[in-house]
């Protein structure tokens, strides 16, 4: 009797959250999967009886869509180049702020962290002007070092690096904090013992800091990767995917097909491919880091 009451009470406390998640998260995931096997378009939106089951047709079309490959390539570029750069900057700044020689840590931390809380759309607009080839502050500062003007957002070769630079600036402070938490969890005695054994600071870093940070790094690696795969607002406000599709991303492609042209069946297949790739990359990363730890 007592036990069954506890069960009932527990489910009552869970009910609001679980029903919200079921209706607005889990059912839509399944529905999206089903949608990706249909030709849902603007006509079906008006009258559902126009809806046809098309099997794998959307996925077949996807494979033959050069724009999809371009978007996939750009997104992978963003993840594979931007992710590690961002994590390394986070680690570097975390180590700097952990140094015993530094005072006013709170002030520096505030400066480094401020971009994280800002609105991506608003700062992407700011950076669009900073990147202006003639009037932008960035080219102006580069000119002090004799570097000639770069057409950051107009040159297909530079547009992706420009997006990555903005993303690193915006995000590195977040992982920096997590690294700091990880560093603070390393017992001081380990370093003391190493010093007594005559280990230099680089050796201490290699044999203590890096292995002790492994769980933190796994968490950061995974969350950063998943976040970077969802690359969207930067190209949306800065370049609309241009120049010459140099910055079109998977999510931007999904948005355009789904909500601009209302070809939602096709758009759903784009979304699912994104999900599959994230899943694949996560599994690979988990395996790799587990392998490295053993």
């Amino acid at each position: 009797m007592k036990k069954s009451t506890t069960q009932t009470v527990a489910w009552m406390f869970l009910a609001p959250a679980l029903s919200a998640l079921l209706i607005f998260f889990f059912i839509p995931i399944i529905a999206a999967f089903a949608l990706s096997f249909t030709d849902f378009d603007i006509y079906s939106l008006g009258n559902i009886s126009y809806l046809r089951f098309v099997g794998f047709q959307n996925y077949v079309n996807l494979v033959h869509d050069p724009l999809f490959w371009k978007a996939l390539g750009n997104t992978l570029y963003f993840v594979i180049a931007g992710g590690p750069v961002s994590v390394l900057v986070s680690l570097g700044t975390a180590l700097l702020l952990q140094s015993r020689l530094v005072k006013y840590k709170g002030v520096f931390r505030f400066f480094f962290f401020a971009p994280v809380v800002t609105t991506l759309v608003a700062v992407a607009i700011v950076w669009r002007y900073l990147y202006h080839p003639r009037f932008g502050l960035i080219n102006f500062v580069l000119s002090w070092f004799g570097i000639s003007a770069v057409d950051w957002l107009g040159d297909p070769a530079w547009a992706m690096p420009a997006m990555i630079l903005l993303a690193v600036w915006k995000n590195f402070g977040y992982n920096m904090l997590i690294f700091i938490a990880g560093l603070q969890n390393i017992p001081e005695e380990l370093y003391e013992a190493a010093r007594i054994d005559g280990a230099g600071s680089f050796q201490q870093f290699r044999t203590i800091t890096i292995p002790m940070l492994a769980p933190t790094s796994l968490f950061i690696g995974l969350t950063t990767m998943i976040g970077y795969f969802q690359f969207f607002a930067e190209p949306y406000v800065m370049t609309q995917g241009g120049p010459q599709y140099a910055t079109i991303s998977i999510v931007l492609l999904m948005y355009q097909h789904g909500f601009r042209w209302w070809s939602m069946g096709y758009s759903a297949s784009v979304a699912f491919v994104l999900f599959a790739i994230i899943l694949l990359f996560s599994i690979v990363q988990l395996r790799m880091q587990k392998g490295a730890a053993e």
Partner: peptide
């Protein structure tokens, strides 16, 4: 309660699904 740890693990694992996947059906709904 029965199934607590399994349910919790399932929820945590499903955080890997990007929100964008849900947006099309959510809009229609």
């Amino acid at each position: 309660f029965r199934g607590r740890d399994k349910l919790f693990k399932f929820l945590i694992a499903s955080m890997i699904v990007p929100a964008q996947v849900t947006m099309l059906p959510l809009f229609l709904m």
